[in-house]
Design a protein around this nucleic acid. Structure first.
Lengths: 200, 200
DNA sequence: GAAAAAACCGACCAATCGGTCGGTTTTAAT
DNA sequence: ATTAAAACCGACCGATTGGTCGGTTTTTTC
């Protein structure tokens, strides 16, 4: 049990910070408050993180990593477009159920990203990856005949991502306004409808 | 020229605040900085606004009002679904061109809305209005035969709004990543495709 | 078990924050 | 010209902020 204690407090700090960043925002909550919630001292905090912003970056890195793992699941689902869409729908629904509480962090990421270069690059990179992957998938679908050939797959991929991001945002800001799982399902089906080669 | 001066400085303060809120964020920029940018003193500031938050609310009210005016244009475009969609597309494109600079405020609104009740209600109200109007429009389209009857118009309306919000967000955070006008156009066409009664 | 290293503590600091206040200048009314 | 009110000024205040530092406790190493 060498560095077990160290890693433990580090984890406690990050957990406390996520909760406070969500509820109060990055600027509105102080380091002292994070320390109190985590049950440690300020000295311990600055022993693990060089600054408040570094803590934020660490949380973001971990979050992006977990997203990457989710995305990796899509490839395992196969390369057929309808099948991947189905997997995506399921993943989105699971996000809405069990991870909806920590979604405010997503907004915090966005806001910070628009003002800090380092945060910006880390946030933007995965987006481009998803878009590229999905666009390629659509292009393959064209070849195999399941996707209509007059579709602009680059724009279509962005349309899907924009829809998902928008739904996530609204689901967070006004969770009671609609059945967001149903909205996701409907949107996915509409997307599929307009992307697939019309059956004849 | 009675209260001309007063209104003038008030406008200067709001303009300075918008610019600083966009670039630095609400919490990260101080009242003193706003005053310096506006070229007035702190005393003058608190003569016009009771608090920093009140200034924020005032900016938001003005923004929501301008949105309402844009929306009013849609009704003038007629009640036919395809026609309204076309008008919406045009409006979105114009937003991307001439108003893209002040879009970071939108994020600021969202973030504040998730934490402050008063801001929340003001932000949420118009969304529900748009969704309601558009859902009704789709329902009418069902009756007149231009919209497929198996569509859930409530969810479909949310799908559209989520797509537009997501596009706006992404277009702001990564303006160079795609031709966002084209994305809007593509998304609108896809939406129309899947909503309209399939031609036979 | 001694000594070195890592983890931790909490009082403290300079800087900054939103907001106040007594006083001055500008404008409007008489 | 006088006066009252509105607009404006900027020094100041208490509170809070991110971050520091000398010292203590715990863990690891030999």
């Amino acid at each position: 049990m060498a560095q077990q204690r160290s890693e433990n407090t580090r984890e406690q700090v990050m957990a406390a910070a996520v909760e406070l960043f969500c509820r109060l925002g990055y600027d509105a909550c102080g380091v002292a408050e994070i320390c109190a919630t985590a049950g440690i001292s300020k000295g311990a905090f600055y022993h693990h993180f060089p600054s408040k912003k570094a803590l934020f970056l660490a949380i973001m890195d971990r979050w992006l990593q977990s997203i990457d793992e989710r995305i990796a699941g899509f490839r395992a689902a196969g390369s057929s477009v309808p099948r991947v869409m189905q997997a995506m729908t399921g993943a989105m629904e699971s996000i809405f159920t069990d991870a909806s509480g920590q979604l405010p962090m997503f907004m915090e990421f966005m806001v910070q990203a628009s003002r800090d270069q380092a945060v910006w690059e880390a946030t933007i990179a995965p987006y481009r990856t998803y878009q590229t992957q999905f666009a390629r998938m659509l292009a393959e679908g064209k070849d195999e005949g399941s996707i209509r050939v007059d579709l602009d797959e680059q724009s279509a991929a962005w349309v899907l991502i924009a829809f998902l991001v928008g739904t996530l945002l609204q689901g967070e800001v006004m969770p009671e306004a609609a059945d967001w799982k149903l909205v996701v399902k409907t949107g996915m089906r509409m997307f599929l409808d307009s992307v697939q080669r019309s059956a004849e």
